[in-house]
């Protein structure tokens, strides 16, 4: 464990807590893409198949349970909570995410570390996570200026993977045989997708204006 990875995990945890806070406090999920939340639930379930077979550390197990639990709780809330579900932007959240699922799965069948069920699903979850934010970015684009909690959620989510890239560089420099090409390349693509959002987020923060994304 290094400081970059810890910062990344904490930032990731903050992004989930910000989202849960927004939904719980305001009983509203306007501006949040259910499709992105469902993709994240699939990412965590398919990535943590080793939850009960591999014990790495208490921290690792607890964080896995938190990520799986919170992502499923958010999806449940947005789908079935009688108050929250009314504020879901159903007509704006129309990203055809089956494409993302299909492409990620096919890519995982071709590119993986070992051809075992667990490794193919692990690679699938890595590829899927890189593109899972797309429905949310499209929704932010369509709904124009975002309310700041939705913007903060995306900001922390992007920052977490940027910290992980620093972690991979650090591990590559300090551990001889550290190679995680699948994670590194996918993580770079993921962070790049946030780049334009970060730009507009910084501009709005600098001008102390509401976040305006070009339609």
């Amino acid at each position: 464990m290094n400081i970059f990875r810890l910062a990344g995990d904490m930032t990731h945890l903050i992004s989930v807590l910000v989202l849960l806070l927004k939904i719980y406090a305001t009983k509203s999920c306007s501006g949040i893409s259910l499709k992105t939340q469902e993709l994240y639930a699939i990412v965590f379930v398919t990535r943590y198949l080793d939850l009960f077979t591999d014990f790495i550390s208490l921290y690792n197990t607890v964080m896995k349970l938190v990520f799986i639990g919170s992502s499923l709780a958010i999806v449940w809330c947005m789908r079935y909570h009688r108050v929250v579900r009314r504020s879901y932007d159903r007509e704006l959240d129309t990203f055809r995410y089956w494409i993302l699922l299909g492409v990620s799965f096919i890519l995982a069948l071709v590119l993986h570390e070992k051809f075992t069920l667990q490794e193919v699903f692990w690679a699938f979850s890595i590829y899927l996570e890189a593109v899972a934010i797309l429905p949310q970015l499209v929704l932010l684009q369509r709904s124009g200026n975002v309310d700041n909690l939705a913007g903060q959620y995306v900001f922390f989510l992007g920052a977490y993977r940027a910290f992980y890239i620093l972690n991979w560089i650090y591990r590559y420099l300090t551990e001889q045989r550290f190679t995680r090409w699948i994670s590194c390349v996918s993580g770079l693509v993921q962070t790049a997708l946030y780049a334009d959002f970060f730009y507009y987020y910084f501009i709005s923060w600098k001008n102390n204006a509401k976040l305006q994304l070009p339609a």
Partner: peptide, 10 residues
Amino acid sequence: SSSINGHDEL
């Protein structure tokens, strides 16, 4: 300690 399948990251 990295796990059996080497994935010790979240």
